[in-house]
């Protein structure tokens, strides 16, 4: 089965906490030289986009780093779209229309992800309140 044969680099990282009994291999055949666009500016855009697009059948890996055939197809599609003059937004929309938000490594800002983006700031505000409170009390004490 296509999706189970391809194993990815980050799967190996699972030994960071020692995983068991998995067959792993490291294939370093990510983006290939033949895929590169002639225009370096366009190529840079393509690389940037591919680094934000998840390899769907891998674990936490972008299509830029993946050797999966689907990742390669997507890289080629992204480059074709760039040469055809699509904007980055159009390309991301093309991808999410087909694969959902799951394909974006950088989650978009919308209702389901509001908490994800806002909570770090709320944490930050709480920290500032704590500091202020401590500071105020210290003046009272003295």
């Amino acid at each position: 089965m296509l999706k189970n044969i391809k194993i990815n680099k980050l799967f190996f990282l699972y030994i960071f906490l020692i995983f068991t009994g998995s067959v792993v291999a490291n294939n370093c055949n990510a983006v290939e030289p033949e895929e590169f666009l002639k225009d370096p500016k366009q190529e840079l855009r393509a690389r940037n986009i591919s680094q934000n697009v998840r390899c769907l059948i891998c674990q936490n890996q972008s299509i830029d780093e993946s050797s999966a055939p689907l990742a390669k197809d997507l890289r080629i599609i992204i480059r074709n779209k760039i040469t055809e003059g699509s904007t980055d937004e159009e390309i991301y929309k093309f991808l999410t229309d087909r694969y959902g938000d799951f394909i974006l490594l950088n989650p978009p800002f919308k209702t389901s992800t509001i908490l994800l983006w806002i909570l770090p700031f709320i944490f930050f505000l709480i920290a500032i309140v704590v500091l202020y409170w401590h500071n105020k009390n210290s003046k009272k004490n003295n």
């Binding site: 089965m1 059948i57 689907l70 197809d73 599609i77 087909r98």
Partner: peptide, 13 residues
Amino acid sequence: NGDIAINWGVYGI
């Protein structure tokens, strides 16, 4: 070349 599959949002067959 797998284009139809991508348009259908296919992950793997």
